[in-house]
Write a protein that binds this DNA or RNA. Structure first.
Lengths: 226, 226
DNA sequence: TCAATAGTGTCTTTTAGACATTATATG
DNA sequence: CATATAATGTCTAAAAGACACTATTGA
C-alpha cells in the first residue's frame, strides 16, 4: 500500500448559537491559538460521532442539537507540517448553557470575526467558519432549522429574532413573517401557554418545534427590509 | 503522533449525465466489481483536483464540467479491510462524449440501480450514488445547474427534457416552464439562431447558459404533473 | 391613561398554473 | 392542406408584501 495516500483525518465542529442579537461561534484555544474544536478521526468512530464528542469535550454537549456534515478540506499545504484532511461539521445549539472556561474556550461574535476584529484562527478555520455561516444562512430559507437555535418553548417573536441575528437583517414584515410561520404545517406547534411578563406588552403564544424539516414556501432573504 | 488517526483517504466521483430520457451514472469495474471512479488523495493534490483526475482517467474529462463536493463517508467498517475515509464528489456533464471501454467503464441508468436491477456496487457506493442523485434533484430546483447537463447551444425544450429525466417526471406545464426560464435573468442567453430541421415543427430558439447560478424564484418539483 | 408588544384584517401587486391561441416548420 | 413543435396570450387562484387595525399586558 502506498503510504503517500495515508493522511491524518481530523473532525472539526463549527458550533453556532444566537446570543443576544448576534450569531456566535464556539472556539477553543489550542497551543496559544484560537481555532475550531478538532479531534482525530478513529477507525471505531463515525465522523458524526467524533464531531459530537469533540464539542462535548469542551463543554457543549450536542446530544439533542442539530448536526450535519459541512465539507471536507484537503488543500495541499493547508497544514504546513502534515498531510491533513479535515471533515468539518456544523452544529446549531440553543443559547444558554455554555459560559465557563473563558480562557480555553469561548463564544465569538461571527460578524466580528468576519470583519477581522477577532483573533487569527488556526489553519483555514476562518474559511470553514465562513462556509458554516453561509450554509446556515441559506438553510434558514428553506428548512425549519431556525427552531434548533431556540430553547423550547419559544414565541414567534423569538423565531423572528433568530432570523434577524443569523441574517444580520430582518426577514421582512414581522406580521407577515408570523403568518407564514403559523401557516406552514409542522413548523411550530402551539403549547397553549403564553409567556409570563417579560417587560411590557401583550403576552405571546408559545410553541415547540414541529416535525417538518423543509419550508415550502421558503422564507427568503431577498425580502425587503423596512 | 497517534498512528490510529491515520487513514486512507480516497476521492470518489459520481459523474451524472442525461442520455436519452434517463439520468445515467458512470461506473467502473474494479477487481470484478462495479463501483465509482476512485483514487487515493495525495498530499500534493486538492480534493477537487483528484476528483477531476480520476474521472479523466476513465475517459470522461471534467475540465469544463460542474464539479462540487458531495460529502465525506467514514462509517466504521464501511471498508472491512482498512480505515478508509472517502470524499465523494458530484460532477454533471453533458451527454455525448463517453462511449468506449464498455467492459471497464460504462453508463448505468440511475433508476435501474435504484430499483436493484443494476450490479451490486463496491462498499457503500450505492448509498453515495443515491446521495448524489438526491442532491442533483434538489439543486435543479433552486440553481441553474440543469444547463451543465446540456451541450451548447440548447433549446428550452432540451432544458425541459433535462428536468424530466432528472426528476423522473415533468416540471409542470411546458409553456409556463419556458416563460419561467426566459424570465429568470442570467439563466439562458439567446444566441439568435434557431435549430435546423429535426423532425417536424417550428424551429426552436437556441440558447447558451447565462452567468446566474441561483434560481429565484425556484422551479419546484411539487408542481402538478398533467 | 399611555407605551409596548402580539396578533389579525385587508388591500394591492406579483406569481403560479391551466389552457387557448398564434407561429413556423415538415410531409 | 394536415400535423407537429415552438412560442405567446389570457384568465383565475394563490401568495407575497405593505400597512392599518385590534388585543393585552405593564407602568
Amino acid at each position: 500500500m502506498n503510504t503517500d495516500a495515508l493522511a491524518r483525518v481530523t473532525v472539526d465542529t463549527v458550533v453556532l448559537a444566537v446570543r443576544g442579537a448576534h450569531l456566535h461561534v464556539l472556539l477553543t484555544k489550542h497551543a496559544g491559538r484560537w481555532g475550531l474544536p478538532s479531534t482525530p478521526k478513529t477507525p471505531e468512530e463515525s465522523l458524526a460521532a467524533a464531531a459530537r464528542r469533540v464539542a462535548g469535550e469542551i463543554g457543549e454537549p450536542l446530544e439533542r442539537a442539530h448536526l450535519e456534515q459541512l465539507a471536507a478540506y484537503g488543500e495541499p499545504g493547508r497544514d504546513p507540517a502534515d498531510h491533513v484532511v479535515s471533515v468539518a461539521h456544523l452544529a446549531l445549539v440553543p443559547d444558554g448553557r455554555f459560559e465557563h472556561q473563558r480562557d480555553a474556550a469561548r463564544w465569538w461574535v461571527v460578524e466580528d470575526l468576519a470583519r477581522g476584529e477577532g483573533p487569527p484562527l488556526e489553519l483555514d478555520h476562518r474559511r470553514i467558519v465562513d462556509d458554516a455561516v453561509e450554509r446556515t444562512r441559506a438553510k434558514l430559507e428553506y428548512t425549519t432549522l431556525a427552531t434548533r437555535l431556540l430553547r423550547e418553548p419559544f414565541t414567534v417573536g423569538d423565531l423572528y429574532e433568530v432570523y434577524c441575528a443569523v441574517w444580520g437583517g430582518n426577514p421582512g414584515d414581522k406580521a407577515n413573517f408570523a403568518r407564514k410561520v403559523r401557516r406552514t404545517e409542522g413548523f411550530v406547534i402551539p403549547t397553549g401557554t403564553t409567556t409570563p411578563h417579560r417587560g411590557r406588552g401583550r403576552p405571546a403564544m408559545r410553541y415547540v418545534a414541529g416535525p417538518a424539516t423543509a419550508l415550502r414556501p421558503p422564507i427568503t432573504r431577498s425580502a425587503s427590509e423596512p
